[in-house]
Each structure stands twice: as structure tokens, then as C-alpha cells.
Nucleic acid binder design. Structure first.
Lengths: 155, 155
DNA sequence: AGTGAAATCTGGACGTT
DNA sequence: AACGTCCAGATTTCACT
């Protein structure tokens, strides 16, 4: 990957509202050149969007949990995925290899709220064989940054 | 929570580079008032930072995995957490309840790269009893947005 | 705490190297 | 492909409500 683009992604990951002039100065380019690279990265889909990272506990989301879900048959997938997409408490959903089918990351107010999401919302669907919930006691690291390699890859 | 702040967090989560004027117009406030609320939310720590969400596959991070880690004794924690903090491939580290101690979310280039991170970097530490790696085959949802409740919470 | 206007600064367009 | 200039528009400050 272009070293300029790599640096741009790194700096913008840390501060998405950085001024083009500051970004440009940090990488040794002029502001228009830096801005053009950013819009190109957006067009290419390398930059998905700019987001604001909110402290969950400051807004009453005190509980995090991982929920492994096993589905009975593929025909139940559609409804399941539609529900997952709808639920704001489900931050992530990954299709995984191994004993279970999906691994969800859930953030909600408290254990009662988690019970509502898991037992009432998710388990109410047909085809859910089982769920295994793992409570997060403390989050030590939570980054949105992607490890950028110095070596080449497809551009 | 203040309904203005709630709306601000929601809108900025979707687009952190939104102009204050546009943000203000969307919530029915003037630009200076909106900007002041944002800086107050930053001072309070409600907004942790503004981040750019990069498509992992576009930058050669094709593999995601969850790694559960069991530590032998508390005295090995310090070195383990220092390593976790250092490794860019480890995006998240949660202290969890249950059979294992920590759950890591890892993003890296390929299975060989995952082997380097898990087998060489992490397992080389003293006190690691075992690791259980779960490969992610597909990521269906991955959001940084926090579910904001309409009801009150501490401010 | 929010508004509106003024001064300042930023960002996108264009022409040049 | 990057730079520098120019102008429209956004941000910030300030006085006022």
C-alpha cells in the first residue's frame, strides 16, 4: 500500500475530525493532495465511514457480553439475521467456525436488559437450538484501528 | 440524558466529520450551541474520540478470530496485558466470566499470521495455560454505535 | 443555555510545475 | 501527481436575550 495512504488511515483512525491541513502537514503533503487521497480512499471503500466512539458506561450501557448462537437449520438464517440487524444492542455478529454458528457482541444496560435481548428477542425466534452467554467483567482494550502492514497488498 | 445530546451522539456516530451547521440543523439548534455541546461531551468523556472505520479486507486484514486465553496466576497479568496493548492485531481484550480469563478479538492477514500472533507472541508468555481460537468465517454486523436509551441515566 | 452577526480560518476548484 | 492561490462557506468568538 502507498505509504501516504497508510499514514493517512493511521492518523484518521485516531482523529477522524482532523483538519486536512494538519493531516497534510503530518505526512508531508499539501492540504489539497491529502484531501484528494482521503476522498479516493472513501470511493474505493477503504474508508467505510467516520464514526464517533462513545463511552458505553457514560450513556448507561454498563454491561457487555458475548453470545454464541446455534441455529437448527439454514432456513432460519434470514429471520435471525434480520433481527440481529434490527437490535441496536447487538453491536457485532460474526459467523464462526466451531461448535456454534454465530458469535454476537452485545452491549446493554444491565443483566435484566441482557436477559430481555437474549431470552426474549433472540430465543423467541424459531430454530435457535441454544445460546451460550459470556459476561464481560472488564474491557481492557477496545480499538477500531486495523493493523496496517508495511509490506505490499492489492490496491 | 438530554435529548439534544442523545441525538448528537447518534448523528456523530454515523458521520463524525459532519459539519456543525448540518448537525445543528438536524436537531434544531444553532451551530455554536451544537459545537459547544460536542466539546462538553468530549470534556466529560462521553465522546472518547472520533475514529475512521477502515475496511479490514481492503488493507490486507482478511482474517478475524476470537481467542480465549486462560492465565495460570494473577502475577502473569501485567506482562500479558502489556503485550495485548502492544499488539496492533489484537483489537479487543475483555476480562470475562466463565472457563477462560480473557477473550481477544484479533484481526490479521491470514492463518499464518494468526499463528504468529497466537502461538508465538501470546503463548510465548509465561503463565498461559491454554488458548482457544475461534475463526470468523464472515462478519455480518460490526457497529461502533452504542444503543442509546430514551429513559434517563446519570449525567 | 441558546441566538445571531462578525472576524477568522478552512476546504474545494482551478491553473501551474 | 502534487503545489499554491483564490473564493465560498464553515467555525469560533462575542455581545445579547
Amino acid at each position: 500500500m502507498d505509504p501516504y495512504d497508510s499514514k493517512i488511515l493511521q492518523l484518521l483512525s485516531q482523529n477522524a475530525r482532523m483538519k486536512w491541513a494538519d493531516l497534510a502537514a503530518s505526512i508531508g503533503l499539501s492540504a489539497p493532495a491529502a484531501a484528494e487521497r482521503v476522498s479516493r480512499l472513501m470511493d474505493q471503500g477503504v474508508i467505510k465511514h467516520f464514526s464517533t466512539i462513545v463511552d458505553p458506561e457514560s450513556v448507561g450501557c454498563d454491561l457487555a457480553a458475548f453470545v454464541a448462537v446455534s441455529l437448527e437449520r439454514p432456513e432460519h438464517r434470514g429471520k435471525f439475521l434480520a433481527l440481529i440487524e434490527k437490535l441496536a444492542e447487538v453491536q457485532e455478529c460474526h459467523h464462526i467456525a466451531g461448535d456454534d454458528d454465530y458469535l454476537l457482541k452485545v452491549r446493554c444496560r444491565n443483566t435484566k436488559d441482557l436477559d430481555r435481548v437474549v431470552s426474549h428477542e433472540i430465543k423467541s425466534l424459531p430454530g435457535i437450538i441454544r445460546t451460550k452467554t459470556t459476561i464481560v467483567m472488564d474491557t481492557i482494550k477496545e480499538s477500531t484501528e486495523v493493523a496496517l502492514q508495511s509490506h505490499k497488498f492489492s490496491s
